[in-house]
């Protein structure tokens, strides 16, 4: 481990012990962050001594970068706070990986989490701005939800990863009514099955269309009701 990293860890541990957990969570590097958290736990248990606070640190250039961008900083703080609340309430279901305003959630309890996100008085995510699906490769599909609270005016992006072989995610159609059509569209385009959706069928394509067009390995069907399906022209720049 480089000396700089050691210094950073020592500094963050000290900050964390003094009650400033936000700056620990703001640390971008996941490895460093987990090391810091583990160290704090050990110190609290008493199995480790508190490291010395290093003098003058690498985060000074960061601060000069941030001048004049105070707005960005506060929104980041808020999304960090929301993330922490989620981590505290659903520790097994959420995953703190992911940067700038998005976080990964495991699919099993998504409906509970969604209901909680909408009803928790300090969050009140009452509008689902956008829901989209994406084929991220390596046999993984992602469903992403852009949430927004009209009351508190804050945002959160939730991402759920599922394997292609078992592309099932609980439907939140009854939490945000617009999810009804959004989920139908994602089902139509990527074949993610939303479990519990009351009317899950294709929305933009005909009912008897074959395949999921927005998957990266999609192959057009040869004919559709006797009509030859035109192929993508090759050699386009």
């Amino acid at each position: 481990m480089s000396q700089e990293k050691e210094k950073l860890i020592a500094e963050l541990v000290n900050k964390g012990l003094d009650g400033d957990m936000d700056s620990v969570n703001a640390c971008e590097d996941r490895v460093t962050r987990s090391k810091v958290k583990a160290m704090i736990m050990k110190i609290k248990k008493g199995s480790l001594d508190r490291p010395q606070m290093p003098v003058s640190l690498s985060d000074t250039p960061n601060e000069s970068d941030d001048t004049g961008k105070t707005d960005d900083k506060t929104t980041e703080d808020i999304s960090q706070k929301i993330k922490n609340m989620l981590l505290d309430n659903f520790p097994d279901e959420t995953d703190e990986t992911g940067q700038d305003g998005h976080m990964y959630v495991r699919p099993d309890k998504w409906l509970d989490i969604a209901t909680w996100l909408k009803s928790e008085s300090s969050l009140l995510f009452d509008s689902l701005q956008c829901q989209m699906g994406i084929d991220v490769g390596e046999d993984i599909l992602e469903s992403r939800y852009n949430l927004h609270s009209m009351v508190h005016d804050h945002y959160l992006e939730v991402r759920i990863r599922v394997a292609r072989s078992n592309a099932k995610i609980p439907s939140v159609e009854q939490v945000w009514r617009i999810a009804d059509w959004f989920e139908r569209e994602t089902y139509d385009m990527l074949g993610i099955e939303y479990v519990g959706h009351r009317d899950l069928r294709r929305i933009l394509l005909p009912d008897d269309w074959e395949g999921w067009p927005l998957r990266k390995d999609y192959k057009e069907q040869e004919t559709y009701h006797g009509i030859v399906v035109p192929k993508m022209k090759e050699g386009w720049d």
Partner: peptide, 28 residues
């Protein structure tokens, strides 16, 4: 509200582009 969700993989071609259409939600 017209929303564009753009996922870029660093190439000159969008990896995924989603348009959140306002009329779509209004019709629902």
């Amino acid at each position: 509200d017209l929303g564009y969700y753009i996922e870029s993989d660093g190439s000159p071609i969008p990896y995924r582009l989603k348009m959140r259409s306002p009329a779509f939600t209004a019709l629902s």
